[in-house]
């Protein structure tokens, strides 16, 4: 049995008029176009918010390198910022959870040194959401 490969072309399967080809190609162009428009770095961290106790949060830039020392309930917590990443170097809490959690770089993340009442939130310019369920 001889198979005719021409049957596999689009024209053999459906009658394609000029407008059909035009719509097909224009809509195929939409794919890379919409890709470049929507696949931006929406998760990029713009800044961090440091909250100590009941004080209003203080915003720091995430760029470059710096160490911030804040004084909380029990003593000093040292926050290190390095090229878009944040970690806690030292904090007086007993279990050292915030120090052990290491580097954070995802917007929406939070580092909390609970005993010392120090919180660091990584914020971006975009609105955030955690999850949704119906």
């Amino acid at each position: 049995m001889i198979y005719d490969l021409r049957l596999l072309t689009l024209n053999a399967m459906i009658k394609m008029k000029v407008g059909d080809w035009l719509i097909l190609f224009l809509s195929l162009l939409l794919v890379p176009l919409s890709w470049s428009m929507t696949q931006s770095d929406s998760g990029a961290v713009a800044a961090i918010e440091v909250t100590v106790g009941n004080q209003p949060p203080v915003v720091y830039s995430i760029k470059g390198r710096q160490q911030i020392t804040v004084t909380g309930e029990l003593g000093n917590s040292v926050i290190e910022i390095r090229d878009g990443k944040v970690r806690i170097i030292s904090s007086p809490g007993k279990r050292q959870l915030c120090v052990l959690s290491g580097w954070h770089q995802q917007s929406g993340d939070n580092i909390v040194c609970l005993p010392n009442k120090v919180g660091v939130s990584l914020i971006s310019n975009r609105e955030q959401f955690d999850g949704i369920n119906f």
Binding site: I14, K17, G19, D20, I23, L24, S27
Partner: peptide, 11 residues
């Protein structure tokens, strides 16, 4: 007159 099922369906 210039479109068939393909174009209309895709759009």
């Amino acid at each position: 007159p210039w479109v068939g099922m393909a174009g209309i369906s895709i759009l």
